[in-house]
């Protein structure tokens, strides 16, 4: 795994390796010394063309816990906001000796382009690209689901909301289906992409029916700009038909959990009492995000070494 661009690139074994690694790394959080020396001397650059404090901080914490040097470029206050191109920014980072670039970009495919254009030689981790994917979010969601449900095989996960514009939904559908879960998307038809019938999941317009006996429900944020673009008649109607409230949460299976990638519109897609209720794992998701991103950085940077070193040291191959 040289790069992490899309969850659809991950095999089941690769996905499980990331999740298992994250589980071990998560235990570091419980120790007095919350730091590992693994990536000492490596440079991880967070390149955020789009504002996302949560994801940026999570990646920063992950890299620092692995002792990497972290450089952060954010849209505000750098040349990124002055119209410097993705390519020129990438070349700058390469010149600074970045070993990995964590990129958040408003254009779908920008991380893919960065990884395949030949502009840079470092590893690329997609931290959310346009309306395409957000693989580490899906991995932390899967991680959280595993913590609560143990096995994902055969589990029923319902994802509700603006699937059309959601990179979280795309990454989750691919990853959760790879891990054997049965995913159902629920949204008004206007917020489902053309061709969603070809995705490895079921689709429903009826939230109550989908929630009945489900093991988990993930509520997607409804962006403000969608509310004014005729995707649905009113926030009130959306909330009534597709919002998660206490009555609906009660339809879930025993032990089922409620996820939200944040930030939430309380009262819109999720009611406050459900967001703060016993089934909600929304705060855990944030904690797990750091562990998952540590695992990703470790595996991606290690794989990079593996590519270049090959049969580095046969003698050292024997346990020392």
């Amino acid at each position: 795994m040289r790069h992490l661009l899309s969850t659809s690139d991950l095999t089941r074994d690769e996905a499980l390796l990331i999740l298992d690694t994250a589980a071990e790394l998560g235990r570091v959080t419980d120790r007095a010394v919350k730091k590992l020396p693994t990536l000492r001397g490596r440079t991880v650059v967070n390149l955020f063309f789009e504002d996302s404090t949560r994801t940026r901080i999570s990646f920063e914490a992950a890299a620092k816990r692995l002792s990497a040097d972290v450089i952060t470029f954010s849209a505000k206050g750098s040349s990124v906001s002055k119209g410097e191109s993705l390519k020129d920014t990438a070349l700058t980072l390469e010149a600074m000796g970045a070993d990995a670039v964590v990129v958040r970009h408003h254009a779908s495919g920008a991380p893919y382009r960065l990884a395949h254009s030949g502009w840079v030689g470092c590893s690329v981790v997609n931290a959310g690209d346009g309306t395409h994917e957000h693989p580490t979010q899906a991995l932390l969601d899967a991680f959280t689901l595993r913590e609560h449900l143990r096995e994902l095989e055969g589990r029923r996960v319902v994802i509700v909301g603006d699937v059309l514009h959601s990179r979280v939904a795309r990454s989750n559908v691919a990853l959760l289906s790879t891990l054997g879960a049965q995913v159902t998307l629920v949204a008004p038809p206007t917020l489902l992409p053309v061709g969603v019938d070809t995705w490895p999941c079921a689709v429903s317009y009826d939230l109550d029916a989908a929630l009945e006996g489900a093991d988990a429900v993930m509520m997607l944020r409804v962006q403000n700009e969608r509310m004014n673009a005729a995707y649905f008649p009113s926030t009130h109607e959306y909330s009534r038909r597709y919002g998660l409230d206490t009555r609906r949460a009660a339809l879930l299976a025993d032990g089922a959990i409620v996820l939200h990638p944040g930030p939430m519109n309380r009262g819109m897609e999720i009611s406050a009492d459900v967001a703060d209720g016993p089934r909600s794992v929304i705060v855990e998701q944030v904690t797990n995000g750091v562990s998952v991103r540590m695992a990703v950085l470790y595996l991606v940077l290690g794989a990079r070494a593996e590519d270049s070193a090959g049969e580095a040291s046969a003698a050292e191959a024997v346990s020392a």
């Binding site: 779908s108 309306t131 395409h132 053309v194």
Partner: peptide, 18 residues
Amino acid sequence: AQMNEGALSGVLGLAGWP
């Protein structure tokens, strides 16, 4: 719009040109 609208545009997250 960025590409032909169809199953692929949905997967790639590119706005469709139907």
